[in-house]
């Protein structure tokens, strides 16, 4: 008996269930059909009734106060309202600001809910009165400026060494920036007491750190992790280079013409040829050795000084239209060839 009952139940329940589902479905279809008449849409089987679920209304708070910008007195101290750098906030800035894309025939978007205004960094915390007040406040930590350092030139003569370093300010978990360790030292070469030899040696030591146009030697150090260490290191570098350039080593005497850093006309073949040519034209015997050539006074030779200059500048300054022209003129003068005539 019990088995039968069970069996009956087992068959009965699903059928009931089916029936219910069917009914549900039919009502759904009815609803959908009604909707479909209104808006032409595919009917969707909505079993969970997601659509009909009423969205919970979010209660609006009724105690939100108006913007505090409206309560601000016109003669307030703005520095108190906006004391430090921060992102723009419309409710605390009493200005009718507009920013952003302008649709045709409309005003630009206002300050509320305006991401454009929030994106750009603002300087509302650095108004002129605030800057003035802050300067007054930190004046107590400032010492007097030395009186004689009243011009750029005075500063340059008294403080020839220039140190350049950077500090960084940014929003991240750490206030430290590895780039701030880099230290650059600049000094004018003319301010260093160097003679001809030591100057040459110094330039060879610093290599491309010397800029001829500005006469500046720039030494940069970034190999130590901390700025102070780098600072000490550039100091050391300058000192070491300077003192090394003052030394004269034994092997420096072995310097040949090929090692010269500039073209010395007196030591070169050009002078030799000139002297030989001059002696030959005067039918003199030329039995000079190398030293005699160097010592030979070219002022006896007419126009030789101009030639010397032209050759030196051609070799030292490089080949350009001007130097070549000068050379041509000097050679014509030397050889007594008439000047070049420009045919018009």
């Amino acid at each position: 008996m019990s088995i039968i009952i069970k069996h009956w139940r087992s068959t009965g329940l699903p059928s009931n269930f089916n029936l219910r589902i069917w009914r549900l479905h039919s009502t759904n279809a009815d609803v959908a059909a009604k909707k479909g008449e209104e808006e032409e849409e595919f009917r969707v089987l909505d079993i969970l009734k997601k659509r009909d679920r009423v969205q919970r209304r979010v209660a609006r708070r009724n105690d939100v106060q108006p913007d505090r910008a409206e309560r601000m007195a016109p003669d307030q101290n703005w520095g108190n309202v906006w004391p430090g750098p921060k992102t723009f906030h419309p409710s605390s800035v009493p200005l009718p600001l507009h920013q952003g894309y302008v649709p045709k025939g409309q005003a630009p978007p206002g300050k509320k809910a305006n991401a454009e205004l929030m994106k750009i960094p603002n300087f509302l915390h650095l108004t002129p009165p605030v800057i003035k007040a802050q300067c007054e406040a930190i004046k107590q930590f400032c010492t007097e400026w030395p009186k004689q350092l009243n011009s750029e030139e005075a500063i340059e003569t008294h403080y020839p060494v220039e140190i350049i370093s950077s500090d960084y300010c940014h929003a991240s978990p750490t206030i430290r920036n590895p780039l701030s360790r880099i230290v650059t030292l600049r000094v004018k070469l003319s301010t260093l007491n160097l003679d001809k030899h030591s100057r040459d040696k110094f330039l060879r030591l610093v290599g491309d750190r010397y800029d001829e146009q500005t006469d500046l030697v720039t030494i940069t150090a970034d190999r130590c992790p901390v700025k102070k260490q780098n600072l000490e290191y550039v100091d050391y570098l300058l000192t070491a280079c300077y003192h090394e350039s003052l030394n004269v080593e034994e092997w420096e005497k072995d310097k040949t013409e090929d090692d010269m850093e500039y073209y010395d006309w007196h030591k070169n073949a050009s002078k030799k040829s000139l002297v030989q040519w001059f002696l030959r034209t005067n039918n003199e015997v030329c039995d000079l050795n190398d030293d005699d050539y160097v010592q030979y006074d070219v002022s006896q030779i007419p126009n030789a000084e101009g030639y010397e200059k032209a050759v030196s500048s051609l070799m030292n300054d490089g080949e350009s239209e001007e130097t070549v022209n000068n050379y041509a003129i000097a050679v014509r003068k030397l050889l007594g060839v008439p000047e070049k005539k420009i045919v018009t």
């Binding site: 403080y159 950077s166 500090d167 260093l192 007491n193 100091d235 000192t239």
Partner: peptide, 21 residues
């Protein structure tokens, strides 16, 4: 190999130190 954030303000300080060689 550290990627640095781009929004930094950088204060470069030039200072001249009185240092004779």
């Amino acid at each position: 190999n550290i990627i640095l954030p781009t929004r930094w303000s950088r204060f470069t300080c030039f200072c001249r130190s009185l240092s004779s060689i």
